[in-house]
Each structure stands twice: as C-alpha cells, then as structure tokens.
Design a binder for these strands. Sequence first.
DNA 1: GTCTATAGAGCGATAGAC
DNA 2: GTCTATCGCTCTATAGAC
Lengths: 199, 199
Amino acid sequence: MAEEHRTKQVIRAAARRLFAEHGYNAVSMRDIAQAIGKQPGGIYNHFPTKQSILVDLMQENLTRAHAAVIDPINRSAAPEQQLEAFVRGHVQYHIDNPDDIFIAYMELRSLDPENATQIMAERDRYEVALRAILSAGLRDGGFKLSDPAIHARSILSMLGGVTVWFRETGPQSPSDVAECYVQAALQSVAVPYTAKHER
Amino acid sequence: MAEEHRTKQVIRAAARRLFAEHGYNAVSMRDIAQAIGKQPGGIYNHFPTKQSILVDLMQENLTRAHAAVIDPINRSAAPEQQLEAFVRGHVQYHIDNPDDIFIAYMELRSLDPENATQIMAERDRYEVALRAILSAGLRDGGFKLSDPAIHARSILSMLGGVTVWFRETGPQSPSDVAECYVQAALQSVAVPYTAKHER
DNA sequence: GTCTATAGAGCGATAGAC
DNA sequence: GTCTATCGCTCTATAGAC
C-alpha cells in the first residue's frame, strides 16, 4: 500500500472525530480546518468534496472490519465456534473503533445515492457472512432458529448497541462485554433441552 | 383555536416524517413549509424555532411510549410476565411509531444542551422501569443475570434494532417479530451462564 | 394566520498568489 | 501544498402588509 500524505491522514482523523460527535451535516469544512490548524480551502488539495471524506472513512472502516472480524473465522470449525468467534471479533472491533462504527450506522443517509449503493453492497457482505454461519448451524442441527436472515439481523442489531452504551459504563472490561454478548447470541439460537457441547 | 391547532398538527406530521427520513440538520424550514403547502415564515406562528419542533416531537413520543408500554404492566405479576409484557409492548410501539423512534435514537445530539438534559432524563425513566423488572426477577430467583443495568441496556439495544430492519423484511407480521424478541429477551436472562475456561 | 421580502450569518467550493 | 479572498447559494429567523 502506498504511503499516504500525512496531512490527508490528519484530515481523516479530525473528520472521523467530528462526524461521530456532531454528525456529518452539522460539521463544516471550516470546522475540520480549524481542528487541524489549517485553512478551509486547503482541504480541497486532499479531498475533492466534503462528501468524499465521508465515503473515504466509510470504505476504510468496512475494509478493516471485514479483515478483523470475518477473515479470521475458521470456516471448517463448528457453527457454534464460528458464531462465538464472530461475536467476539465484532464486539472487539466495535469497542476498538467506536467513531467509525457510529458513523457507519448514522450517516448512511448522508451519502449521495450512488455512494450509498456502493457502501451498502459492501456492508451486505458482512451480514451474509453471519447468515452463512447461522445456516450451517441450522443444517447440522446445532442451532434452532426460524429464519437465518431474521436471526442474523437480530444478532447484528443487538451487537450494534454495544457502542451506544459501552462508553457510559464504568468497570466492565471489553472481554466482560464480549462474554455477555457471546452468551446472549448463542442462547438466542440455542437448541433447548440438549446436552451442552464439549469444549 | 381549532384552525391553529390543525395547522400545528400538520407541521408536526411533516416535520416528523422529514426529520426521520433525512435527519434534523438536513431538513430546512423551507422543506417543511413546502411539504405542507405553506410559506416558510408562517411556521413561526406555531413554533418559535426549528429546534422547538424537534423538542416537541421528542417529548410527545416519550409521553406516548411510557403510556403505551410501561403503564399497562402489572407490577404485581411475576417478573417473567412483566418482562414479556414490556418486550411485547416495546416492540409493538416501535413498529407502530417508526419515525418517532428513529428520531429519538438519531437526533439526541441535535438538541441544545438544556433540551438534551431534559429529554434524556425522561428517557431514563423508561430504562429504570425495565431495570426494576430485572432486579425483581433477580431477587426472586426467576432470572439469572450478572447485572440488571447491563442486561437492561443489552435488551434495549437488541429491541431498538427492530425498526432498523423491520421495514425491510417482507412476510413477518408484527406479532411474529414480537414473539421472536420475547423469546430472545427471556432466554437472555433465564439461563444461567456457565463460565468457560480460557484455552 | 398567512403572505412577501429580506436581513444576517454560514455554507461548499473555487481562483490565484506564493 | 497552503494561503487569502470571495463567489453563489442556502440557512434560520424577522418585519410588516393584508
């Protein structure tokens, strides 16, 4: 990967923080310029439009999330273990990248139509990966669920909430939080009245 | 006056729809005026500022949600039944009022500080009600959970996701969705967590 | 109570010096 | 690549006719 200009990275960092805190529409190019100690016009040497900054941040986030959560999952392991790995990685990524996650959830509607289509297509790849795990568990009898698509969205919705309140809580460590969600996710698809699987 | 009241309600309905669709900051007074077939200046005969429209919508939503979900719960019933009633009412209210719910989640940061404090205080009353149910279930042994505060937020986060995707799904009826969430919520507090050893 | 008209401020984006 | 300066536009809110 080519080394990118330092100023561009500084702009990214400032925009990420400001977009997450105030929302894309509430942040002006002047705000970003002030945050990095430069003049507003200079930003256009690195990004052609304000919208392009948002698209850049969202694309980079999706690429990193897929690499951090989906790619490491052992696709030949049992579905229960795959789901546990997914939940753990997902929660950890959310905790490690709260601003990117917040932007991803909140600013889809701030994208121009063509950009929104592209970002949502990339986003779908993430949900498809979870759905594949649930479908595998449904086929081999390890999971009990009515519809993999519904449960995939239910789990993602539940997991998505972690960034809403994690910063507000005090003594819970990231692994505590991940443990709580792993339990909830596995239970939500668990087969009742069966012996616990061996570990 | 009846005429005044009617116009104010029309403004509310238009603002609710537009704020939910595009976000508070992306909607102008001109947009609202155009949506109701009036001129922008006339809106100020009914609301002193644009912000006051948002506050009005959020307050009304919280009042209605509390009346529809919390108030009907039988506080002398078993915690399991109270939790089920809460989840069912909560999901139903979300399905019935998607725009209000979306605004409540997305536009807290668009509020001026004093308005945000007031709205969040009212919001807390809702979470406190759920926490009381979980604590009651913890005391009488019906629930097994580590921390009512954590599980209350976990459940609310999970339930909050329903409006994100419910419109996108096809054949599921509201009662199907409520059933799915009732099961997930009850399971998340009804099964004891068995700590797993580190590998 | 709704209209027309506009004030005053802030916006994204551009031009050109250096 | 950053600066100064500014264009053209949109915004919230107000003033005053009717």
